[in-house]
Design a protein around this nucleic acid. Sequence first.
DNA 1: AATCGATCCAACCGCGAGTAA
DNA 2: CTTACTCGCGGTTGGATCGAT
Length: 287
Amino acid sequence: MGHHSCCNQQKVKRGLWSPEEDEKLVNYITTHGYGCWSEVPGKAGLQRCGKSCRLRWINYLRPDIRRGRFSVEEEKLIINLHAVVGNRWAHIASHLPGRTDNEIKNYWNSWIKKKIIRKPINLPTPTSNSSIQNHMPTLMQAGFMTASINQLQPYREINCYNSMLPSSLPIFMFDSANGDGSVVGNQNYEPLQGLPPLPSAEGSNGCMTAGVDGMVAVGPTAGFVGDHEGDTSGASQECFDKSDLSEWIGTQLYEDLFIWDQDSESVCVVPQASTNDASFASFPFTL
DNA sequence: AATCGATCCAACCGCGAGTAA
DNA sequence: CTTACTCGCGGTTGGATCGAT
């Protein structure tokens, strides 16, 4: 495509920066500052566009930049922040002094590739929900954290595999009786402490529509997951909006989550870092 | 040593927001 | 109100590097 508007009137160099260009930019910025990036190339004697200068300075040349591998603490912080704000890299970077949004984004994308790209596995034909339970080790071996929902009915029907789940794994059900999505607990039916109430569920604002015997599972870094496969109520397949759930999700991190839908006799996988419906739907496992 | 696929990451692109004229 | 322009952001690309064979 075309160049930036700020580059149209001049012949600009592109590609990697040379040490000489870096030196010119650093010398100019350190003595004059950068009030207007579009003026920087001309005044600094660079055949670059202002946008390129800005990017080079912010991502590489500024003195407070921190390079090298991310520490464990930084990694945790990135994961936690991503669970809250999603792909708002600049926001995440603002919490990590010396790190750039670009660096964090690159790190995250490569991390994602390592963590979530897995091949589908063959699952056995279930005769009952317990048969799924029998094969949980297989799923675990394949690298998935697993959970199972006996029936997608109100929360009292939750049937999970307690020993295989972290105690903090949040599962919350949409209560069709009162249109309230406020029931939150872990697989032991214990309410999770210190969590704010779920956002109100209103179909018009991206939250799950009232009246659906739906289920929402908070996946790993996902903000939301759609309601269950096989829902024939005709109601919305809308999800809780990620931003609405961000406070609730907080700093939790989970591995892939298996959801067993008895109605459709299928298992769906909520992949790590799934961030939308499409991603959810792209991992169906029909038995 | 050579080859080649995988991975990394610096840089580019397009878009939206803000703002001045 | 409209237009033009700049800045900043997130998504994407492609060259450089790494590692396995």
